[in-house]
Design a protein around this nucleic acid. Sequence first.
DNA 1: AAAAAAATACCAAAATATAGGTATTTTATA
DNA 2: TATAAAATACCTATATTTTGGTATTTTTTT
Lengths: 205, 205
Amino acid sequence: MKPTQILLADDHHIILDGLKVVLSNNDNMQVAGMVTNGNEVLEFARKYPIDLVVLDINMPELDGISCARILKKELPHIKIIILTMYPQKSFVNEIVKIGIDGCLLKNNTGKELITAIKRVMGGQAYFDHLKAFSDDKDEVIRFKLTPREIEIIKAISNGLKSEEIAEQLFISPHTVLTHRKNILKKLGVNNTNQLIKYATKQQII
Amino acid sequence: MKPTQILLADDHHIILDGLKVVLSNNDNMQVAGMVTNGNEVLEFARKYPIDLVVLDINMPELDGISCARILKKELPHIKIIILTMYPQKSFVNEIVKIGIDGCLLKNNTGKELITAIKRVMGGQAYFDHLKAFSDDKDEVIRFKLTPREIEIIKAISNGLKSEEIAEQLFISPHTVLTHRKNILKKLGVNNTNQLIKYATKQQII
DNA sequence: AAAAAAATACCAAAATATAGGTATTTTATA
DNA sequence: TATAAAATACCTATATTTTGGTATTTTTTT
């Protein structure tokens, strides 16, 4: 059987190096390429016949999730496994929607990645940390932020005050205040400080 | 020559796995152990004769920097290389003070780690990303936070208000306000929102 | 023991955020 | 084309942070 052609994507070379060696020990898997951002993933996937991509979420230029979305539309036969540092609930929704095949945390052995790849190539989904990722899916959905809200959060985290945000987005300061209220409520946090910590950890910003 | 005995410390197993394989290809280096937090590093180092530790900064229980500090006092012959995700200016000072032997970013090839280890074992320091780490050392020193200030920042990021922080630390609310003022001034940020973003990115919290 | 750094405490005014609402318009989606 | 979701806007009151000061005590370093 032809070995599974795998593309590795992570902006940290040392992780790529590690992953490569881990997978190289396996006869029916071959690392076809290693790239460091989402755009390079697309370029590579359009050019070479790969079977599976291991995608880090946080990459410069084009992040893993956005990349996966494009990839699944353009080349739906390519399997996608997301490899991330932390469980990011904010993405569960997207992950399911896009049709990503597998998800696992970096806090995991190489063996587990191999298991995941095998499972996914066999047509099954692999969400080892399903619990961590979606232990309360409804909650996640309920808390889903709108694009505008994410814009607002980013502005807040940059230290802009409501009035400045309003100017920047050409809307009324009242609207900004409303957004802020909604955001706090959705995320179940009490104030902006908690919001920023949460958003940073969840890598919304 | 006896191979260099190396202890790897990172809270992400997949990185440990990767590092191990990368180093295993080298005859005069041997991975003596792999651990996932600072306390385990200390336990291991007290028990087994290791030559060098590769330390991640961000680990649960006992972080890399604190661990290095203890290690250098207790077992000064052990070389320490810090391996971190981002250049964290806030730590440059500490790194120099503690006498850490090397520093490199995870965004780096395995080859570079091997080079670093060789260099460090040869008695030299290895700060490949010295520039990233300390392109403005004076600034870093000027901006250095006191332990108390870091405590305050953590509390703020948890969403506590000044009064609550005061209660928690058994000090006057006025003192908390003073600390907050000093922190903002030291870090050159305009408000708490910027502070939290900065602190999170720099991984002060 | 002296000097420097860190932690402590207080005052007062101005600026901002938060909490409680209601309500209309625009944009997606079924 | 209905319907739902998102974005918009406003009001009032209270809570909290931020700014600009001064100053003493404790701890650390030289």
